[in-house]
């Protein structure tokens, strides 16, 4: 018998089903409302959306075309290249810099709980931002007859697109201690992913070109959701991007233990 087994064992709480995801999620979501950056982001997004909304109204009036609900959501989606890094760059980089990651990693908390809690907190905040834009849809619905089904499809797409973008941003936040570096890398990656279908045009090898195009986040949103279509392959694409980026983020957090 091992001598360490002879020592009386202390009782420990049983592992919880959801781990500590909920505790971390609550803190992260709360953090958005105590730090000025989140209010600032919300303010700027609403301002820009308002400007865009007015511009769209003018266009629809002049061209006498049907008002399109997804157009506004599509515009919101295009902002995410800049907004997602802003919303996520703090999440892990700050913990790495302040040394609080050491505390989290010595808590009875799984590494994946830390990453998931933070991601879900950011996604929840993003969802709130997205829901605020519904105001413009209500105004639109009161003056025109937009296609409601298409509007809902575009929101589902924007929600998934946002989740994928935030996951990528979080991944870069896990990589470094510097928020600016995290933000810049996230911005660059999201930009490349968004524009991959355009960049693909310069690739001569047809197979590679198709592959790069298939990885474009912009294409997966604009060719389906933006037209009011929810396609399984596009849904799965965003889910895979999310899962992949989060997996890498968990690995990055784990690697803090080995340095």
């Amino acid at each position: 018998m091992n001598d360490h087994q002879a020592e009386s064992r202390y009782e420990v709480p049983p592992p919880a089903l959801t781990g500590s995801v909920w505790a971390i999620f609550k803190r992260e979501l709360g953090q958005y409302f105590v730090s000025p950056i989140a209010y600032f982001v919300a303010f700027v997004i609403l301002l820009i959306m308002g400007l865009a909304f007015n511009a769209y109204l003018e266009i629809w009036k002049d061209q006498r075309t049907t008002a399109s609900a997804p157009a506004l959501v599509g515009f919101f989606v295009s902002l995410m290249v800049f907004m997602a890094p802003l919303l996520t760059m703090r999440l892990l980089a700050e913990e790495n810099r302040e040394g609080t990651i050491e505390l989290l990693l010595t808590m009875p908390v799984r590494d994946i709980d830390i990453v998931l809690g933070k991601f879900l907190g950011a996604w929840a905040y993003y969802t709130l931002l997205l829901l605020v834009t519904v105001v413009y849809q209500l105004i639109l619905a009161s003056v025109a007859q937009p296609d409601m089904g298409a509007a809902i499809a575009s929101y589902i797409g924007a929600w998934l697109y946002g989740g994928a973008s935030l996951a990528v941003g979080l991944m870069f936040s896990a990589l470094t201690e510097n928020q600016i570096v995290a933000g810049f890398l996230g911005l660059s990656a999201l930009m490349v992913m968004f524009q991959a279908n355009t960049f693909a045009l310069s690739i001569s090898d047809p197979n590679l070109r198709e592959l790069v195009r298939a990885l474009s986040t912009g294409t997966h949103y604009y060719r389906s959701f933006a037209n009011g279509i929810v396609r399984l392959e596009d849904v799965l694409f965003f889910v895979f991007v999310m899962a992949g980026a989060l997996f890498v983020a968990v690995r990055m957090v784990e690697s803090r233990r080995w340095r």
Binding site: Q5, S8, R9, V12, P15, E98, G99, I101, L103, P108
Partner: peptide, 23 residues
Amino acid sequence: GYDVFTESMQVRHLVGYMPETVP
């Protein structure tokens, strides 16, 4: 009595830790 590597979660429940730079 718990191994710090293979039974890390139990150890973490039973230890209170204050790192050098208070996090």
